[in-house]
Design a protein around this nucleic acid. Structure first.
Lengths: 156, 156
DNA sequence: GTTGAAACCGTACGGGC
DNA sequence: GCCCGTACGGTTTCAAC
């Protein structure tokens, strides 16, 4: 039996490109070229492919949350009030820009959110908005300090 | 009394630049210039300042975790075995590349980690490594599905 | 902040492996 | 198929204003 391709990286060069652009998304093709030892054209073609195949899904600036007025982060676990109802909480909450991430999880709660707000008062307002928008209970864990986050996901 | 600057964005134009580069970190200065209505040079100078002031701390490619062989994510809460000891768990764990984020938190546990691994077996190995490296108990919540994450932090 | 000129970069295309 | 080189238009950079 032929083994399935375990992931969508063709080879070590693709992995090197992903690593380099994960470390600095604004790196030029010339810099990426130097990093992996291929011509600029070849790197450009590979980068395009990585984007179209969905390996690279976008490019983001990392922004200091305090600098943009959102110094308070929290994990909010949510659970539907009525477990019988169809559950589309992620969609119902998508319009709330304070929510940075939404995962469904194993364990006591149904979803884990990561949120960022300006103050405890804003956190209270957001939690109320979450509860009423998605008909859920919430369990909130305040982040006291972030040591690191958004470390690059490196190809194995 | 003069109000303290609440954050480190000078004005709406800086906010616009941050928003634009958060949405697409590979946008050219010309594109950013068009987005905020300033000359290319002025945008470049502002972007540099935002970087040196620490408002923008870097640029990352968003990588599909499954495509690079890490389809399994989990939240790992950790608590020191001996609460009397000096606690430098974040440093002790920093060398583990599977850890994407480390926050200290309020509540039952001391820290919340976000980790990504290839399989349940790798998760077990990682949890053992975390326990022995930082002398902690762990409480793990597996991520079943990620609806969204890394949504941009927009200036208020 | 703006303009402008030189250096650099992104892109498409041709040819070779 | 993938890769490299070249050429042209767009971009980045920096100095002068």
């Amino acid at each position: 039996m032929v083994p399935d391709t375990p992931d969508r990286l063709d080879d070590d060069i693709d992995a090197g490109i992903v690593r380099a652009v994960s470390h600095d998304a604004r790196a030029t093709l010339a810099e990426l070229s130097a990093a992996v030892g291929l011509s600029v054209s070849a790197v450009q073609a590979r980068l395009r492919k990585l984007e179209t195949r969905g390996v690279i899904t976008g490019y983001r600036a990392l922004v200091d949350a305090e600098s943009v007025g959102k110094p308070l982060a929290a994990f909010v676990e949510i659970t539907p009030l009525d477990p019988g109802q169809p559950d589309n909480a992620p969609e119902l909450l998508e319009h709330l820009a304070e929510i940075e991430a939404c995962h469904s999880i194993a364990g006591d709660s149904a979803y884990m959110l990561l949120v960022r707000v300006a103050s405890p008062r804003h956190l209270e307002t957001l939690i109320r908005a979450i509860r009423s928008a998605a008909s859920v209970n919430t369990h909130t864990t305040v982040v006291l300090q972030t040591f690191y986050e958004n470390r690059p996901i490196l190809p194995a």
